[in-house]
Amino acid sequence: MTDLYLVLAVILFSVGLVGFLIRRNALIIFMSIELMLNASNLVLVSMSHVHGVLDGQVAAFFVMVVAAAEVVIGLSIIVTIFRARRSTSVDNEILLKG
């Protein structure tokens, strides 16, 4: 039963990784990152349950806080880029080339 939680987390993480790689819309790339963060949270919580200590849940809580801050910054960057370029496709962001 414990393995099943890990397998679910592996599947969610892999789907998030594939989404991160194949999508070009910056918003959906961002959602894929959230998916991977949630998969790691699931591992932390299930391992906390397995080992009988609450430290895993604290770690998952901190991951959520960091994810929330990251979403705020990332989305405001996306809005700023959209304001300048009228697009959220990451293929268009070639102005950062050196």
Partner: peptide
Amino acid sequence: VGQAVTAPAVGL
């Protein structure tokens, strides 16, 4: 994950 040896869950 399949190679890992996991004990039954202790519970919280």
